[in-house]
Simulated scan of single mutants.
Amino acid sequence: MVSSSRTLALTAATAVLVGTAGCAPQDEDPAPAPSATAASCTKEGLRTRTAGKLTVATDEPAYEPWFRENKPESGEGFEAAVAYAVAEKLGYARADVVWTRVKFDTAIAPGPKSFDFDINQFSITEERKRAVDFSAPYYLVRQTVIALKSSKIAGRKSLADLRDAKLGAQVGTTSYQAITDVIKPTAKPQVYNSNDDAKKALQNGQLDGLVVDLPTAFYITGAELTDATIVGQLPQVGAPEAFGLLLDKDSPLTSCVGGAVGQLAEAGTLKTLEQKWLAQVAGATELQ
């Protein structure tokens, strides 16, 4: 059953997203990309890794609700659907899209990329923009704390209540940064190579709580760990956190890919995809 609070949150997020469709949040604008003509933003005009093909990357495994059953090529799941919508805007048929797998921390590291763009819940940050390019944002996100129902932090209502907790997150993510910058626990947060590793640590009692984005939190607690619960959302600090498609630094594709995302936002396509794939998650209490 869809929560009205979650639906309103998604609608509000999309409204902000449309307003920022041409660029990232104001204080996180990617470096200006060369202007692209309509002719250059077509399959025939784009300088992709393989002529006539669009190589799209994501992590291994690819998690729900962003991808269904770890099969991005199916187009099922929010990010899989967004990737194919961007490809279509650029003139690529589904058969022209080639998927590859790249670990999260490898994708955000400096250096040449093995893909045209990567979609994997990459938050747009100033630090990352020194190494990679980002498209316009396609989703606004909140970080969320989950815990086992038996955990000492289950049911806690404030950030102060979490300061003595053992917390963890996936390496290189803004979830980890949210722990250090927003919660500021007394114990050093634990870092894991993947959310799967982090979930195992939570199940084994090595963590009191795990920080992930809100849709992932609802999927984990609703479908994967039935003995887990959402403690609450972390407050937004500064500009809204936004996911963007990741490209090689100074990629010749950045302007066209960003423009395609912006067009999808303005047309309401991103809102429709959110409602289809993410609206089943309900709202969560905000920790103050």
Rank of each mutant, 00 (worst) to 15 (best):
residue 181 D to E: 15
residue 239 A to T: 14
residue 5 S to W: 04
residue 26 Q to H: 08
residue 280 Q to A: 11
residue 197 D to E: 09
residue 83 A to N: 13
residue 14 T to M: 00
residue 247 L to P: 01
residue 127 E to P: 14
residue 26 Q to D: 15
residue 250 D to H: 08
residue 17 L to A: 11
residue 208 D to R: 10
residue 7 T to H: 00
residue 166 K to H: 14
residue 203 Q to R: 14
residue 67 F to P: 05
residue 22 G to Q: 07
residue 231 V to M: 05
residue 46 L to N: 09
residue 203 Q to A: 11
residue 233 Q to F: 04
residue 206 Q to P: 01
residue 270 L to R: 01
residue 131 A to D: 15
residue 169 A to T: 05
residue 174 T to W: 06
residue 59 D to F: 05
residue 186 T to S: 13
residue 140 L to I: 15
residue 97 V to C: 08
residue 95 A to P: 00
residue 198 A to N: 12
residue 95 A to E: 08
residue 203 Q to D: 09
residue 139 Y to W: 06
residue 23 C to D: 15
residue 125 T to V: 14
residue 258 G to H: 03
residue 250 D to F: 09
residue 154 A to N: 11
residue 169 A to V: 09
residue 236 Q to C: 05
residue 284 A to M: 02
residue 91 G to L: 03
residue 262 G to N: 09
residue 266 E to R: 11
residue 248 D to H: 04
residue 211 V to W: 02
residue 140 L to N: 07
residue 238 G to L: 10
residue 130 R to G: 01
residue 22 G to L: 10
residue 259 G to E: 10
residue 223 A to P: 02
residue 162 L to T: 06
residue 129 K to E: 03
residue 141 V to I: 15
residue 273 L to T: 00
residue 70 N to C: 12
residue 93 A to R: 14
residue 263 Q to E: 14
residue 74 S to P: 02
residue 114 S to I: 06
residue 214 L to A: 11
residue 109 A to T: 00
residue 60 E to K: 12
residue 202 L to H: 09
residue 185 P to L: 13
residue 263 Q to D: 15
residue 16 V to W: 07
residue 49 R to G: 12
residue 115 F to E: 10
residue 170 Q to T: 14
residue 244 G to P: 12
residue 119 I to W: 06
residue 180 T to M: 05
residue 29 D to I: 07
residue 140 L to V: 14
residue 155 G to A: 12
residue 62 A to M: 13
residue 31 A to Q: 03
residue 245 L to W: 04
residue 190 Q to M: 15
residue 130 R to D: 01
residue 235 P to W: 00
residue 205 G to T: 07
residue 185 P to N: 14
residue 92 Y to T: 09
residue 119 I to V: 15
residue 12 A to N: 05
residue 197 D to L: 11
residue 204 N to L: 13
residue 65 P to W: 05
residue 71 K to E: 13
residue 56 V to Y: 08
residue 125 T to Y: 09
residue 176 Y to Q: 10
residue 38 A to V: 14
residue 66 W to N: 12
residue 273 L to P: 02
residue 171 V to P: 13
